[in-house]
């Protein structure tokens, strides 16, 4: 299994440049994605989920950050060492991304059709084709995401569509040409629960049909449980627990994951647990040892001085904690 990893992030560190120093956001992230696997990255706001996936596509403006350490292998090649031309090839032919806010992801001054035609025009599949064939590809993509009457939608501007429709257009754009991997950054979070359900189902079906790999970012454990094969729980720029989805829910090990799980309101009732005290650390001056130590209930002296490694505790279930 180890060899068919399509993407492997190895010990990635990423620091944002801020006034008087660096904001040390990512602190050794390790994530591997197999071919056809659906991977979830779960964590709270500000824990570095989006930064991690943005660094895969290299879309953070260059002057904003430095990467002191780490590698991102995509199909055996290190993305961080690629030149502009190679990265653009990855972006246009290999990995696609869906952003959280569909309203901001589409350009308001071009019609849906114009924007989607651009994607086709710059892809491998659409390059040699004439206008009519390219348009047919676009219409087919809109049909694939269950939007009725694609001809009409083709001439619409984004503001004429609802949030759910816009997000589906974004998905359509991402699946329109053959890609091997899709990154979805909280695709349902800005939407209502019924619409979110529909969008997730559409996404799931398309990814499975095309045998794509999926990285799904979400802050909701429920969404991750329904959509993914394996889960990486992130806290303050580190992966604290990673395992098969059912193992994470059956056999929750890291104190942060336990706290997160308890804080989720249950459909069966029974009140709400106390949650996790405190807030995410200041990234400019993060704690020396385990970054979760200031909020942890099982904290010992060792946690405050040493950083725990992500260790396998059996069956591919990895946890970064000294006190299990």
């Amino acid at each position: 299994m180890a060899d068919d990893k399509i993407l492997e992030i190895k010990d990635l560190k990423l620091w944002y440049k801020v006034y008087k120093g660096y904001s040390k956001v990512l602190d050794g992230v390790n994530i591997g994605v197999h071919k056809g696997e659906k991977v979830g990255i779960v964590g709270e706001a500000g824990c570095g989920k989006t930064t991690t996936v943005k660094s895969i596509l290299n879309v953070i403006p260059e002057y904003q950050y430095i990467i002191p350490d780490g590698e991102i292998f995509y199909k055996g090649k290190d993305i961080l060492k690629m030149n502009m031309k190679e990265i653009n090839q990855v972006r246009s032919g290999e990995i696609s991304m869906i952003y959280q806010e569909p309203a901001n992801a589409l350009n308001p001054v071009f019609t849906i059709g114009q924007q989607m035609m651009d994607v086709v025009n710059y892809s491998k599949q659409g390059k040699g084709k004439n206008k009519a064939e390219q348009k047919e590809m676009v219409l087919q993509a809109i049909r694939d995401v269950f939007i009725p009457d694609p001809e009409r939608i083709f001439d619409y501007y984004p503001n004429q569509l609802s949030g759910g429709m816009k997000q589906r257009i974004c998905i359509a754009m991402a699946i329109m040409t053959q890609r091997d991997m899709m990154i979805a950054d909280e695709p349902g979070t800005a939407l209502d629960v019924t619409i979110q359900d529909q969008v997730h189902k559409t996404l799931n079906r398309l990814v499975e049909e095309r045998n794509m790999s999926l990285i799904m970012i979400t802050h909701s454990l429920g969404v991750a449980r329904e959509l993914t094969d394996s889960i990486h729980v992130m806290y303050a720029g580190t992966v604290v627990e990673s395992a098969k989805t059912e193992d994470v829910f059956k056999d929750t090990l890291h104190p942060y994951t336990v706290g997160l799980m308890e804080a989720v309101p249950r459909l069966g009732g029974g009140g709400i647990q106390s949650g996790i005290y405190g807030a995410i650390p200041d990234y400019q001056y993060p704690p020396n040892g385990c970054r979760f130590a200031p909020r942890c209930s099982r904290v010992t002296e060792q946690c405050q001085n040493c950083k725990p490694e992500l260790k396998d505790v059996g069956g591919g279930h990895k946890v970064a904690c000294f006190n299990l």
Binding site: S162, G164, M165, D192, V193, T194, I195, Q196, D197, Q198, S220, L221, G222, V223, R225, E226, F249, M261, V264, R266, L267, G268
Partner: peptide
């Protein structure tokens, strides 16, 4: 429809959902 589209975190909760009403359309 609303209750059956909530993403939940355990099997017990899954059992509490009413027989799946597929969510369609928008408000």
């Amino acid at each position: 429809m609303l209750i059956s589209s909530i993403p939940v975190v355990s099997e017990e909760e899954e059992a509490l959902k009413p027989q799946k009403v597929e969510s369609t359309g928008e408000i």
